[in-house]
Computed example of a mutant assay.
Amino acid sequence: MSKLHALFGGTFDPIHYGHLRPVEALAGQIGLKKVTLLPNNVPPHRPQPQASAAQRVAMLQCAIADRPLFDIDTRELARSTPSWTVATLEALRAERGAQQPLGFIIGQDSLLTLHKWHRWQDLLSLCHLLVCKRPGYATQLDTPALQQWLVAHQAQDPQQLHHAPAGYIWLADTPLFDISATEIRQRRHAGQPCTDLLPDAVIAYIDRAGLYRD
């Protein structure tokens, strides 16, 4: 059976260490060899990005140039409709076949609101959910029924993720990085440095493109 392949969606406006480093730690914990970044076009749950689609892809390319764990899939940028995760996963599942183990990486904040996602009940039929810690968020889901759902699907051994195509939730013990793209944009507007928040190559691109100044 094929090795687990993970997917990580986001606006990436811009990509930063709060995206990259927890995922790198997750990869080390569970034996991931490849993580595909899926930049959103029309994110359903948040305001539209400030940077264009092409600029966000360029920042991703800068960020991962020396990080072979990552690659990029731009299929969601070709859509004019909202970037529903379940639709992307259905397309990927059709391409990869029924037996390819697929994981979708989310943060603890997204896990807490997963029951509000479009067709969220279908996600575990298509992939595993790989959950990274996020600072300041609850560890219990909103209702006893949701918490019971989480416990019923929680994987106890990473090998479960590699030997089943979908169906498990992995709660990763990843480092906490209190970094947000909003904070980076605010720092840029204020002319403050961001060298501790994102890769130098991304900062250099932002400078060249004149992003996040207005």
Rank of each mutant, 00 (worst) to 15 (best):
Q100C: 11
K116G: 01
Q121W: 12
Q99E: 15
K116F: 05
I106R: 11
L114H: 13
G107N: 07
K116E: 14
L102F: 04
G107M: 08
L92H: 07
G103Y: 01
R119C: 14
R96S: 12
Q99C: 04
Q99K: 04
E95R: 03
L111I: 06
K116V: 10
A91E: 14
Q99V: 09
G107V: 09
R93V: 08
H115Q: 12
L102D: 02
R96V: 06
A94Q: 04
D122F: 00
R119E: 15
I105Y: 05
L111D: 05
A94W: 04
Q99T: 10
T113S: 15
L114F: 03
R119Y: 07
K116R: 15
A98K: 13
Q99P: 05
L112P: 01
D122Y: 00
G107E: 09
S110V: 12
P101A: 06
T113H: 12
Q100G: 09
Q121R: 15
S110R: 08
A98V: 03
P101L: 01
Q108C: 14
L112Q: 14
Q121C: 02
D122S: 15
G107W: 07
A94N: 02
D122R: 10
L112V: 03
E90D: 07
W117I: 01
W117G: 07
I105D: 02
L111M: 05
E90W: 05
L112R: 15
P101N: 04
Q108K: 13
E95W: 05
R93C: 03
A91K: 14
Q121M: 13
L92C: 02
Q108Y: 03
F104T: 05
E95I: 08
I105T: 06
A98H: 11
G103V: 06
A98M: 09
I106M: 13
F104P: 07
Q121F: 07
E95Q: 11
L114D: 06
W120E: 12
L102H: 08
T113W: 01
G103E: 10
G97R: 06
W120T: 10
D109Y: 09
H115F: 05
W117R: 04
E95H: 02
A94R: 07
E95A: 12
R93P: 08
L112Y: 03
D109A: 10
I106P: 10
G107K: 05
L102W: 06
G97L: 03
L92S: 04
Q99G: 12
S110C: 15
H115N: 15
L92Y: 02
T113Y: 06
I106H: 06
R119A: 15
H118K: 14
R96N: 11
R96I: 06
L114N: 13
A98W: 02
L114Y: 02
R119L: 09
G107S: 13
I106G: 10
D122W: 03
W117T: 10
G107Q: 13
L102S: 03
W120I: 11
L111Q: 04
A91S: 11
Q121K: 12
L102E: 10
Q100V: 02
Q121A: 13
E95F: 01
H118N: 13
A98T: 00
A91V: 10
A91M: 10
E90A: 09
I105Q: 00
E90N: 09
A91W: 11
E90T: 07
A94I: 00
L102N: 01
K116H: 15
D122E: 11
I105F: 01
